[in-house]
Design a protein around this nucleic acid. Sequence first.
DNA 1: ATTAGCACTCATGATCGTTGAGTGCTAACG
DNA 2: CGTTAGCACTCAACGATCATGAGTGCTAAT
Lengths: 341, 341
Amino acid sequence: MLSERQRMILSAIVDDYIRSAEPVGSRSISKRSDVSFSPATIRNDMADLEELGLLEQPHTSAGRIPSIKGYRYYVDHLIRLGGVKEQDVKRLRGLVAEKMNHWEGAVSHAASIVSQLTNYTSIVLGPDSFHTSLKHFQLLPLTETTAVAIVVANTGHVEHRTITLPEGVSMDDMRRIAGLLNDKLTGVPFYKVKTVLYTEVANELRSYIDHCEHILSLLEDTLKEETEPKVFLSGATNILTQPEFKDVDKVKGILDVLEETPRLMQLFQSLSEGIQVRIGTENGVEAINQCSLVTATISADGHLLGTIGILGPTRMEYGKVIGLLDYLSGDLTRLYTRLYK
Amino acid sequence: MLSERQRMILSAIVDDYIRSAEPVGSRSISKRSDVSFSPATIRNDMADLEELGLLEQPHTSAGRIPSIKGYRYYVDHLIRLGGVKEQDVKRLRGLVAEKMNHWEGAVSHAASIVSQLTNYTSIVLGPDSFHTSLKHFQLLPLTETTAVAIVVANTGHVEHRTITLPEGVSMDDMRRIAGLLNDKLTGVPFYKVKTVLYTEVANELRSYIDHCEHILSLLEDTLKEETEPKVFLSGATNILTQPEFKDVDKVKGILDVLEETPRLMQLFQSLSEGIQVRIGTENGVEAINQCSLVTATISADGHLLGTIGILGPTRMEYGKVIGLLDYLSGDLTRLYTRLYK
DNA sequence: ATTAGCACTCATGATCGTTGAGTGCTAACG
DNA sequence: CGTTAGCACTCAACGATCATGAGTGCTAAT
């Protein structure tokens, strides 16, 4: 249980440190216009807060900085959400409208604007396979033995890949197979596709083609790509402007995670709906122990349509970021329902 | 006109500096087993080479480092191309085969392996619009008023986008339009598409639809994306391991260029066929004056199918990189002809 | 409970030799 | 004349020393 004054002091320290990136001393707090305590009083409270694990001291003769636990308390209890500036609203509106006819494009574009507005890195995940189903499957012949397979999802997302026909399978065979797939798989969520493929589809297929195992695994491969959600990055270099990351080695670790999609996805595991904040070690990924991630899910009537994450230093402007994401996720949900319903 | 000894010294300095990133002194050269001159002799030649602008001195009491001009001479006259190691060949072979059924995937994947092998950054440009033509255009209805437009290129590349039907245009109208487009545009190179669209297609269209300007610009937008070649990046963070880029500010400038596609494309302007080396300021882009770019085009019978670029410090292992790209471009050309011919 | 006073700590930054790698020049050598 | 030994000179890098000052914890007075 913190006293009112302690809460105020913690809040002041977090705010100051977010702004300056430098340890905050008792004197600088007592000089604030809304504070009427002497530095000594504040020092006592600061010592208490440190004992509670909410503050840390880089070294004896420096000011205090918030600990992970301190940030957590701040985010949970003290934060004041930033409103979204009129001009920013306009910027988001205008530019999203521009890309309106391409859902994933719109989302990732919006995120890239947020990244510019905040000077942090934005990460966008497309719809996941639990909420996406197959809408259409099509084959377009390219040459005698090659064709483009096109997979369209109910979200409007399209995935494609060039396939080479196996020996002894004609383009006509493939056309029939494509028809079969549309019959059997339309409307099936992608996470179930593999199962259906090897049961229903396989049965039919055996009736008129031998050695269909090869074809099945080819189809599975083709459809598999859709299962993995797409990832978009923007403003990855923004971390470089943060003073705490002026050391190249620290930055390398972070950028490496961003560059490798699988490691990046790890960050987004076990997220629940709405807006979530993960501070420092809470992320559970070694390399970004010094970063915080704010995520917002975008969904319309039960469908998870995407996730937007903002990655910055633990010393992040939480209020501003949460405010922006809150606004944005609402706006994008509205956009989606208008477009696709 | 350089003497044989001067050429040897220049070569030795470049090689040493590439390896160590530190100024090379006369003593260290004279100690090489294949050298039989005294440091003093070497110093004299070094002074000459400096006067010719091939070498530079960071400060009076340091060794020499190659200048841009020095690297240029090295690349043009002294370089020994690196062979490709057996294990690297296997790696490239195996992994390219894996992605074989997806041309751009294969190229970008190969490039990412090169980036790992060299520890530099690889940049891949897809086929450009001069050598790509429309293969097929298709519309798939999503809802009452929206549809996915799919554009397939002769390279097997697929581009898509969700469009919203304009007021007063039915899905049936759109279907007829799609048929028309396939009639008129199949086989047309993308850089001509706009022209054909506004002449031939527009004429037909006017005969049965009013106010078709809106539709035309919608179609143009849809087809335009294909015009811009796709860009793939890999190993962007590798620069961070180079000692000359341990300063965050320098790195920031470079990574910023990599992150913005248009600025990145600028680097690839006015490239000719085959392998090209651009050293430091030769790139003509301020931010990467300290980097070199080695590019290789991949083409089969007149079609430019892609460009692979390797970006590293001016102190780059030119021999190794050129050797790898040379091998790779040949291999990919073979792969392409096997797949699509 | 708050605060003034004070001794104490310690990162930061300036100053100042020391060191050593590397140079340019001159004079001797073959 | 080309090559080399010898030598004085330069200058970045490093470490030691010291002053500075921001900030603390503790004690005693209010």
